[in-house]
Amino acid sequence: MTPGVDVPDHRGRTGLDLVGRELARNPDVVVRDVELTSQGWHVLRRTTYDRRRRDGGWVTEQRETYDRGNGAALLPYDAARGTVLLTRQFRYPVYVNDHPDGMLVEVAAGLLDEDDPETAIRREAAEELGVRVRELVPVFDLWMSPGSVTERLHCYAAAYAAGDRIGAGGGVVEEGEDIEVLELAFDEALAMVGDGRIADGKTVALLQWAALSGPFRR
Rank of each mutant, 00 (worst) to 15 (best):
Ala191Leu: 02
Tyr92Thr: 00
Asp178His: 07
Phe186Arg: 01
Cys155Asn: 01
Phe186Asn: 00
Gly15Tyr: 00
Gly169Glu: 01
Asp113Asn: 13
Gly170Pro: 05
Ala191Gln: 09
Tyr49Lys: 00
Arg54Phe: 15
Trp41Lys: 09
Asp9Trp: 02
Val149Phe: 12
Thr65Ala: 11
Tyr156Cys: 02
Leu85Glu: 08
Ala161Lys: 06
Val30Asn: 13
Val5Thr: 10
Met103Cys: 08
Arg11Cys: 15
Gly4Phe: 08
Arg52Thr: 10
Asp164Ile: 01
Trp209Gly: 01
Leu129Cys: 07
Ala185Leu: 14
Leu206Ser: 05
Glu135Lys: 11
Ala72Met: 05
Pro100Val: 06
Arg132Tyr: 04
His42Val: 10
Leu16Phe: 13
Thr14Asn: 10
Glu180Val: 06
Trp58Val: 15
Asp187Cys: 03
Thr83Asn: 05
Leu184Asp: 06
Gly147Trp: 05
Asn26Phe: 14
Asp55Asn: 11
Gly196Ala: 04
Trp143Pro: 14
Gly214Pro: 06
Leu86Cys: 08
Thr48Trp: 02
Tyr156Asp: 02
Glu174Asn: 10
Lys202Val: 05
Arg11Asp: 15
His10Gly: 13
Asp28Lys: 06
Tyr160Asp: 05
Phe140Met: 15
Ala159Leu: 04
Asp187Thr: 12
Ile121Arg: 01
Asn70Arg: 05
Gly163Phe: 08
Leu85Asn: 08
Ala24Leu: 08
